[in-house]
């Protein structure tokens, strides 16, 4: 358990997981140091907030200073984009260089527990993937998909850090798409559209993880005596077509040679929430095995992929009728 006078630093307070994790940590009476660009309106009073731009070249010194002053013993790093940005260089600065700066500060101040949010997307969707990817599988990403490529780079940086700081627990949590009643991200955006474009003749298995389970996994990892990468996935799998059906959306299969061109154009025109490379995830398998998280973190998902989608769909229906935000 946490040492008495140490505090726990959280980045990305404005992300869904960040907001919820901070709420629960303060509720448990933990001393939380929040780091972000903007102070969230509903940030609990007890949180020490610091406005830091992780992309600044000198942010590592600033962070080290904060860590020392606040006696930070643990870091939960969640400031990653919840959807791909067209500004790929800023995206890279925030996700990769930002992580690097944080790790510099961790090394300087001897932070012993580092939890970083990643995605099972880092494995890449590939026809040769085994049905259940373990954490040792190569991180292929998707060629040209910079948003995911950044996370692959982050994972490599973490691996290097791990091998140099053997006394620190460096945990990366690879989340399946997080869905649920309140979370908003690229997947809720896609499943919230009236019609979901899929690729004709392809219907890969998908898995989701419920937002509550995602939060629980982060909280567990923050205090776990474990090291390495862990897949955080919900129970069971379903074909993409079934998920679209459960979401109450129209499945719009487009032949893939056409679809990639369409989405590429739409992305450039600002009409698509994802670039063409995202379509790979609707074409090939990228289901991950959650066994290691259960063994090492004691994380067992409460919700199945189906239940997760049903909960999202229930609230989305209200949103469609402008009855919910």
């Amino acid at each position: 358990m946490a040492r008495k006078n140490e505090s726990i630093a959280v980045t990305g307070l404005n992300t869904f997981v960040g907001r919820e994790v901070v709420k629960r940590l303060t509720r448990d009476g933990r001393r939380v140091v929040g780091i972000d660009l903007d102070r969230p309106r509903d940030l609990p009073q007890s949180v020490q907030f610091y406005k830091v731009d992780l992309t600044l070249p000198t942010s590592d010194a600033i962070l080290a200073d904060i860590f020392r002053r606040e006696k930070v013993g643990r870091l939960i790093h969640l400031s990653f984009l919840s959807r791909p940005s067209r500004n790929v260089s800023w995206q890279h600065e925030l996700q990769v260089i930002g992580t690097l700066h944080l790790l510099h500060a961790c090394a300087a101040e001897n932070v012993k527990q580092i939890v970083v949010k990643s995605r099972t997307m880092v494995y890449g969707a590939h026809p040769l993937n085994p049905n259940y990817l373990t954490e040792d599988a190569p991180l292929r990403g998707v060629d040209g998909y910079r948003w995911v490529g950044d996370l692959v780079e982050v994972e490599q940086i973490l691996q290097r850090y791990r091998s140099r700081h053997l006394d620190a627990n460096v945990i990366s949590l690879r989340f399946a798409p997080i869905l649920g009643p309140t979370v908003r991200n690229v997947f809720t955006l896609l499943f919230g559209q009236p019609a979901v474009m899929t690729l004709f003749g392809y219907d890969p298995l998908w898995q989701l993880v419920h937002e509550e389970d995602a939060i629980a996994a982060v909280l567990r990892a923050a205090d776990a005596d474990a090291n390495g990468a862990f897949n955080i996935v919900g129970r069971h799998v379903l074909p993409l077509s079934s998920l679209i059906y459960l979401a109450g959306r129209v499945n719009l299969p487009v032949p893939h040679p056409l679809a990639y061109g369409l989405v590429r154009t739409a992305w450039l025109a600002g009409a698509s929430p994802v670039p063409a490379e995202h379509l790979d995830y609707a074409r090939f398998l990228w289901v991950a095995d959650g066994a290691r998280a259960e063994a090492a973190l004691g994380f067992v998902p409460t919700y199945s992929t189906r239940e997760t989608m049903e909960q999202f769909a229930g609230v989305q229906r209200l949103r469609d009728a402008h009855l919910a935000a």
Binding site: N131, Y132, L205, H236, V237, L238, P239, S241, S242, R306
Partner: peptide, 9 residues
Amino acid sequence: PAASVDPFG
């Protein structure tokens, strides 16, 4: 769409 599939689809 399938209501459910086994772990291998």
